[in-house]
Amino acid sequence: MNIDKRLVRKDSLEKLFDILKRNSKTIYAPFTKNGKSTFRDTESFGAISTGYIQTTESAKDIAFPRTEKLLDFSKSKEGMSVKGTDLNDIPDVILWGVRPCDASGIGELSSIFNWDYKDEIYINRLSKVTVFGFSCSKSDEYCFCTSVGGNPGNTAGSDILFTLLGEEGDYLAEIITEKGLAVVDLAQNLFEKTDISGKEKFLAELPVKFSHEDIRLKLDKFFESKEWIEQSLRCLGCGACAYVCPTCACFDIQDEAHGKKGSRVRCWDSCGFSHFTVHTSGYNPRNVQSARWRQRIMHKFSYMPERLSVYGCTGCGRCSRACPVDMNILEHLISIQEVTV
């Protein structure tokens, strides 16, 4: 599909929201509590947070929720009965206000859930999502999308990408996919014809800080480096970096039972936790934090490119912002690039 460019006036965004609501769409948009933002089911346009460089949590939750029931089970005299998730129950969702680094992260996450095993639940959830990306006109010292192949106006992953056209507050809407087009069809008159073409001057400027290709090559011989120990000494081994990351996909499967019935649920897990790799025997192959930190970087910059042909990092900078001890991934990647093996 050719990208169709339209103009959306400042006031039209709210009208669009209302029209979508009238068409009974569920809209997940940034919502702020205690100064931290995440994507929530939103009923009113006014409740949507604005002005954020990046939301605290990523939008991956929409297809890979922190907690998801896989099946129900119950035990009776007749035996065990099991009921799986009804994929038809998954609602249509509009994901509103996603930054390009999150939108492109959906592709990276999908590559994991479509690898050897096709994850039906994830695939179905995602198929119901229409992504409204919003380009970045600002960035901060933690952003580095341009170093990992992205950019502040990247259309990858978005169904429609909105770019703020300066002070007046109008938007350029790039309609990228059929899904995006279906939304435009609901509100034709809000998407005006336009001959505006260049959006670059409205985007944040973000110089490239390292080369992800170089990092990948470097990592091939970096497994035994002392650098991992140096970098990770202050790491506390929590799950903050993984849980806010748009591409971290590790999960745990747990049975939550009450008496004779219960559910099997999938919930987020993190390679940073000390128990993540503990074997039943008690042996832990990653028994120090440096091994766990190494796994985090290797997985994203070596194993994923090798096996899935994508990098596991979109440069959103969330992990650096969320880390309680200032483990700044950008700084660490740069020092990996600079250190001699």
Partner: peptide
Amino acid sequence: APCFKCYACRAACPMCYCSR
């Protein structure tokens, strides 16, 4: 409700040193 159980609070607390 927002708590996603990252356990950063536990990790940062000097008193939460239990290995399990």
